[in-house]
Design a protein around this nucleic acid. Structure first.
Lengths: 151, 151
DNA sequence: TTGCTCCTCACGTCACGTGAGGTGGC
DNA sequence: TTGCTCCTCACGTCACGTGAGGTGGC
């Protein structure tokens, strides 16, 4: 298949595929006589791996090292060790991120409630920021964010 | 306080603070006669807001628009509307991200289990990638990622 | 005077996006 | 022949990082 089809199936841009080739992450199986890049299903899988590792938080440089490690003569023992370390580290990051996103969700929900109450405020104008500050519905635990933005 | 103290308290780099100033997100309360930037507690709060909105996923350009909206003559009604829209959209993104991270965590945990079993493999060498493919502990639901990386 | 912090350029980085100008392939 | 896809430069973007070379302030 040509680069467009590959990119579409993998959910990345054509430019991204060519960029990955520049960095040595992937390369076409062959070329048409006109110079078009031609790929196979293995390349599609490889792009899937790249996407996954990117989501995990690895840089393209790290990904290249992982992908080339299995092709080099470097023992797969070290590869397993490396992946184990990398994955465990990223698991920690994911868990931290999950907690942070959970807090952020709570903050957003609370912020939305406050904004909702601002909308219903008696004063239909609600033009003066200070007016909002005196909204009766405004509780003490207003997220600092809204506090700073609105006042 | 000087820029270094501000940056440290806000958990960002000195360069970032100066960059935010370039973009019009923040500016020092005053300057020393030697040209040093001097900040107050309000600026620290403002940096906190910038950090929060960045985490929410807003670009620095969007953040500037939000922060300048409250200073311009634009009605706070529109500001509230804008924030409401922005926050609701980001809430959706956060929920999507939470789900994705949850799946990623599961994948990572599974990948780590498989790697662990690879470590314990009889063959202490484990050099040949194909050897790993024949590990008895390797189940069918091996994440495609490891499958591609290891084989 | 010695250190530490600050200052302003200004180029580098990462992961691409976005044309410009031209050609392949059905 | 017309469109669509592809090609290679090569500069732009975003959010800073990282020196270079110099000065403020306790």
């Amino acid at each position: 298949m040509q680069i467009g089809e590959l990119a579409k199936k993998a959910g990345v841009s054509v430019r991204a595929v060519r960029y990955y080739e520049e960095l040595g992450l992937i390369s076409p199986e062959s070329h048409s006589q006109g110079g078009f890049r031609l790929y196979g299903d293995g390349d599609l899988k490889r792009l899937g791996v790249i996407n996954f590792l990117k989501e995990v938080g690895l840089s393209l440089g790290e990904i290249r090292r992982i992908l080339s490690a299995r092709e080099s003569s470097a023992g797969s023992r070290e590869l397993v060790e490396f992946l184990f370390g990398a994955f465990r580290e990223k698991l920690g990051l994911v868990e931290t991120k999950l907690a942070a996103l959970g807090r952020m969700k709570a903050e957003l929900v609370q912020a939305l409630e406050i904004l909702e109450s601002c909308k219903d405020c008696d004063r239909s104008a609600l033009l003066d920021a200070i007016a909002c500050a005196s909204c009766t519905k405004m509780s003490e635990d207003v997220p600092a964010t809204l506090d700073v933005i609105l006042h």
